[in-house]
Design a protein around this nucleic acid. Structure first.
Length: 415
DNA sequence: CCATGCGCTGAC
DNA sequence: GTCAGCGCATGG
């Protein structure tokens, strides 16, 4: 398959479609009724109920209206004359030391000069150890792993597009009753105080999405700010990330249900087999680790992973083409695309392939997933003023000899 | 109910 | 730097 992405009509909003109420039991698993887990809470005037924690009645969700959403708005792309000056200034001030153009995936040296990521790597690989502008030394650490300067990315993008007012629509009229008793930040119970935030409990959940909501978090589910969770939004830690709904589990890297699908994944560098290329990456399933001794995690593989539980959730999302939210942590130490600090929401991806292989550790099998970005908003590391467009699938070397492969075989779940 | 989970902290 | 091990949230 040369191109896995169907050509979407230009300007078609591709976001926030909930899966069908009763997923067809293609996998043989019993379909779960979403409403069983979740009941819409009564309006504020109604008497409160302590549980369940989230309302999960699946309503038809409003189509997302994003920055680069509608065809009508696209017509205006060329009238940004007022921004030319800004772009000029940015171009002069921040241009790539190597190619002299506006940097693509910019990285910034401590001396304050910028490179495209690719140009920087070329520069380093050609043996250079100093900045091409001021000859200041480039720290070995940066030479080895340059991190994309997301602030500059933002600045360039802001100069490129004249931001249009976002129509917010009506905000959700309900919120979770149980939430009201919780503080704004993570907190520790009396019993857990000794270990501080290590044993913290989540604070309020600020967004009104159901815990099994697929796709982006829209303005209508953000009654506090009315903007939704935007690509690039960054939080201090997993608990804050949870509070804004991007990824609910506190420790686990996959949010999902075996018979329903996966809502989100976290890239934390916890699995050696993970491999990142920004717009696509290879993700490793969970499990296969010995958690005896009251551990929560363990780096060492102790047995094969199989497609049960969370790994099955990812497999189902792959089959159905559901959108999966992705958050990245600064703990992912091997990637230029990871944030410098905190946890960042990077938009929705689809899982195009799923297979298994012997892990890097050499003994046991791990579940593998090919994630490809598919979001209406540009990624935090690019200065593009548009979201993802169809692109060919990457060539995965480890897939050459693999026979047990699942491919996405339904059209992607976009509106 | 029990098992799992790519966190987090203080203590070395 | 390494390490143990806790509450909590979630799935089953």
């Amino acid at each position: 398959m040369a191109c896995a992405w169907p050509a979407l009509p230009r300007g078609t909003p591709r976001a926030s479609r909930s899966p069908p109420l009763s997923p067809t039991p293609r996998t043989g698993a019993a379909p779960r009724t979403p409403t069983a887990l979740a009941t819409l809470l009564p309006p504020p005037s109604a008497p409160s109920r302590p549980t369940p924690p989230f309302p999960t009645k699946r309503r038809a969700r409003r189509r997302q209206k994003l920055l680069v959403g509608s065809a009508a708005e696209d017509e205006n792309e060329n009238d940004a004359a007022g921004n030319d000056d800004v772009l000029d200034i940015i171009g002069k001030t921040f241009s790539c030391v190597f190619c002299m153009k506006l940097p693509d995936r910019p990285v910034t040296t401590p001396c304050g000069h910028n490179f495209c990521l690719k140009c920087f790597e070329k520069w380093i690989h050609s043996g250079k150890k100093t900045c091409g502008t001021c000859c200041a030394e480039i720290p070995p650490k940066m030479a080895q792993l340059p991190r994309i300067n997301s602030a500059l990315v933002e600045a360039i993008r802001a100069a490129k597009v004249s931001r249009k007012a976002i129509s917010t629509g009506s905000s959700a009229q309900y919120h979770y009753i149980w939430n009201n008793d919780r503080p704004n930040k993570a907190y520790t119970t009396e019993r857990a105080k000794r270990a501080g935030n290590a044993n913290a409990s989540s604070g309020q959940i600020f967004v009104t999405i159901a815990p099994d909501h697929f796709g982006p978090i829209l303005a209508e589910n953000d009654p506090h700010r009315n903007i939704g969770v935007r690509v690039g939004e960054t939080w201090e830690d997993r608990l804050q990330c949870r509070q804004w709904g991007a990824h609910f589990p506190h420790i686990a890297g996959i949010a999902g249900q075996a018979t329903y699908g996966a809502q989100s994944v976290a890239l934390f560098g916890g699995y050696q087999d993970d491999e990142d290329h920004g717009e696509w990456f290879l993700y490793t399933g969970s499990g296969g680790r010995d958690l005896s001794g009251n551990k929560r995690t363990n780096k060492e593989q102790a047995f094969d992973q199989d497609f049960m539980k969370l790994n099955a959730a990812l497999r189902l999302s792959c089959l159905r083409g559901y959108p999966v939210r992705v958050v990245w942590s600064h703990k992912e130490k091997r990637s230029s695309h990871a944030p410098e600090s905190g946890v960042r929401y990077d938009g929705v991806y689809r899982i195009e392939r799923r297979w298994r292989k012997i892990g890097i550790q050499g003994k046991f099998k791990v579940c593998r997933y090919l994630f490809v970005r598919c979001d209406n908003e540009p990624a935090p590391w690019t200065s593009d003023d548009h979201g993802d467009r169809p692109r060919p699938l990457p060539n995965i070397a480890e897939l050459q000899d693999e026979t047990d492969i699942t491919e996405r075989n339904e059209r992607p779940s976009w509106d």
